[in-house]
Computed example of a mutant assay.
Amino acid sequence: MALRGGFLCPTYRLPNPFSFTSRSRDAGRRFAESATAAVAGRRKRPQNVEGEFFVDHLCIDCDTCRWMAPEVFTRVDDMSAVTRQPSCEEERIKALQALLSCPTSSIHTERPTNKILEVQKMFPLPIDEQKIPGVYHCGYHSERSYGATSYFVTHPEGNILVDSPRFTERLACNIEMLGGVRYMFLTHKDDVGDHEKWSKRMRCERILHSGDVEISTADVEKKLCGEGPWDIATDLKLIYTPGHTEGSVCLYYKPLKVLFTGDHLYGSEESDLAFSVIYNQQSVSLQLKSIRKLLDFDFEWILPGHGRRVTFRDNQEKNSALEAFLARQEPLYA
């Protein structure tokens, strides 16, 4: 299978068949046993309600826990806090998933819990097994990417890691059990996280637009040039969407009608479409032009790096939402 649209086909190498070892199991046990010790030097935010879970003062307000476990975590005074303790096992599991995903390890339990070992095995998490089978949330958000979400996609022509989660041996083993990684697609330069560790561990080839290549990503195997589009499989297309950064690119998975947007476009906490002006590194007007380009693609899911997921009933609703968003924003940056 060739990478079409500007660069050559890589040679496919199967991932290393690493197996679980006593060392990785011991690491999981040590995680649970040291939960209380990890709190040393961290202050519990007074905004937390009393109970099992709490958030410390090193929270960076990345929003991860609030969309992963909204029943438990809320934004209070520009940081997350536990405003209601879990009331059932499902809510407790979601809170523990958020604990593992927190990029600054700012979520804690008052006492160590062995339940964390069970929750570790759940990642990557299926997003919607009925509507978008084979698309997963990796969890383990990286502080180096300011808590950005990364995704794992199983595909018959080779699995894809979209942006970089924090590297952990447990997650790596879980991903290998799902078939490993052929490509690591980096949407833009901000969310590359632990890309080198993942590349070495999975022996996958990284893809990044040349406009976003920096010293830390100089050895990326496949550098996109020009304006594309580029195909990495018969039904996976890379769409050039500059604006947030010079080399921002979205991944379009046509059969499932999913668009992985990085930081190009996302949902706000109020469920509206949004983009970041304050963190724009190139041109807001260019970013809006790139958003308008998305009217030409039929998708019903937006899976972003930062921000909330967005779903639409159909392409017509998606286009109506995009048109309304652009009508509000384009006059401001004409």
Rank of each mutant, 00 (worst) to 15 (best):
I302H: 05
V192I: 14
Q120F: 15
A35Y: 01
T104H: 12
L58M: 11
K222T: 00
C225V: 04
C62D: 10
L326G: 07
L303I: 03
R292A: 04
A35H: 02
K121V: 05
R313M: 13
L99H: 04
S210D: 09
L117A: 00
S22N: 06
R201Y: 10
I127Y: 06
V49T: 09
D231H: 14
K115H: 06
S106F: 09
E50R: 13
V72N: 02
R206N: 00
R84H: 14
R144I: 00
R75L: 15
A148D: 02
P165A: 12
T241F: 12
E196I: 03
R206K: 00
M177I: 08
A40G: 09
S101Y: 10
V258T: 07
A148N: 05
M1C: 11
R309T: 01
C204T: 01
G267Q: 10
V310F: 11
P331T: 09
S105I: 09
P304A: 13
W67D: 02
T168Q: 03
P126Y: 11
L100N: 01
P17N: 08
A40R: 11
D191V: 07
Q130A: 15
V162D: 05
Y12W: 12
R166D: 05
E269M: 15
M68T: 02
S34F: 07
V72P: 03
F275T: 06
L322A: 09
A37C: 06
E110M: 10
P17W: 08
T109S: 12
A98Y: 04
P229F: 07
G307R: 03
L238E: 01
Y151Q: 00
N114I: 01
M68D: 02
E300Q: 11
L238M: 00
E246H: 10
V284N: 04
P86R: 12
S22L: 04
P17I: 03
D163N: 15
V310M: 15
M122T: 01
D263H: 12
Y253M: 06
L332M: 15
M184R: 05
W301Y: 12
K289F: 04
A2I: 08
R25H: 13
V135L: 12
L208F: 02
I302G: 06
G211S: 09
H141M: 15
